[in-house]
């Protein structure tokens, strides 16, 4: 295991130029995923995140075969699938999850077929599925930075509308909000957040970046604003710590980052101030006030 000082030295070492790039991309994409993931977790649409992550795959494969930009290839494929899901799920005979089930597996299958036509595909397949910190081109760092900033801007600008739809679709519709378009925007945000994260963390693990930090943040607070700050902080620091551990212990980067985020989630589960396991244990010994006893939700004495 190398010390933090040596890790910083390695980051500055020009021979290891891929390392700071990987760190930048991993932290930026985790921050973006931490924010967008809050919407995903609160809407209970983790399955859609999973679907989009798979749907991105054929785009990556085509970009790889054509030697194009992986970010753009993935984004195009993901957005196409997101639009298909949004359009096809307007048919009420089939539930959304079935539609998603159809399209994302088909997209993944298409990706595997496409990439098998490229020479030496076994190695690149593994790189796609489990991520890699080497071989990130300079322009991708820029693309991730620009795309991430745009994403956060859109999420900020449409925040209250997205929340209104999440809270109560029926009321949002009655109030005249364009619910379909807002859904589509959210799907596209999720897609791009996934695409910019796929390179370092891999196609299979990317869902964790979207869900785990936001879920840990939810455990720690009952306030949306705080949650949306905690999500990216947890995601970004998991990426930083994960990459450091992976570099110093020679472990795969994607897996290590996800395990660090999962550790944060478990700590939050046990230690959360109001909803955590320990707080609830302690809470059970005190009798709730009559007003709170009437409450259908979680009983929190003394609040």
């Amino acid at each position: 295991m190398i010390s933090i000082g040596e890790f910083v030295q390695d980051l500055l070492n020009p021979d290891l130029g891929f390392l700071p790039k990987a760190l930048l991309v991993a932290v930026m994409s985790s921050v973006v995923c931490g924010v967008i993931g809050c919407h995903v977790v609160l809407r209970g649409m983790a399955f859609i995140g999973d679907a989009v992550a798979h749907a991105v795959f054929p785009g990556l494969a085509v970009a790889f075969v054509l030697q194009g930009s992986l970010v753009i290839g993935g984004a195009v494929a993901g957005v196409i699938t997101a639009v298909l899901v949004a359009v096809f799920s307007q048919n009420r005979r089939l539930k959304e999850d079935s539609i998603i089930g159809v399209f994302f597996v088909a997209a993944f299958a298409l990706g595997i077929v496409v990439i098998s036509t490229a020479p030496g595909y076994a190695g690149s397949l593994q790189q796609f599925l489990f991520g890699s910190i080497t071989g990130i081109p300079d322009e991708d760092v820029l693309v991730v930075a620009v795309a991430g900033t745009l994403l956060l801007l859109v999420a900020l600008v449409l925040h209250k509308e997205l929340v209104a739809v999440s809270l109560d679709r029926e009321m949002a519709r009655a109030a005249g909000l364009p619910v379909f378009w807002l859904d589509l925007v959210l799907y596209v945000l999720v897609t791009i957040a996934i695409v910019i994260s796929v390179q370092t963390i891999g196609n299979i693990l990317v869902l964790a970046l979207l869900i785990t930090p936001a879920a840990a943040a939810r455990l720690l607070t009952d306030r949306l604003g705080v949650m949306m700050l905690l999500g990216p902080v947890i995601g970004g620091s998991s990426a930083l710590v994960g990459l450091y551990l992976s570099w110093s212990l020679d472990l795969p980067a994607g897996g290590t980052i996800v395990l660090v985020a999962t550790a944060v989630f478990l700590v939050a589960w046990f230690l959360a101030p109001r909803h955590g396991l320990i707080a609830r244990r302690r809470g059970r010994t005190a009798a709730p006030t009559p007003e709170e006893a009437e409450g259908a939700g979680v009983l929190v004495p003394g609040s």
Binding site: L42, V163, R218, L224
Partner: peptide, 10 residues
């Protein structure tokens, strides 16, 4: 039941 009561909102 149309409202997401588990949402972290005051």
């Amino acid at each position: 039941h149309e409202f997401a009561w588990e949402f972290p909102i005051s």
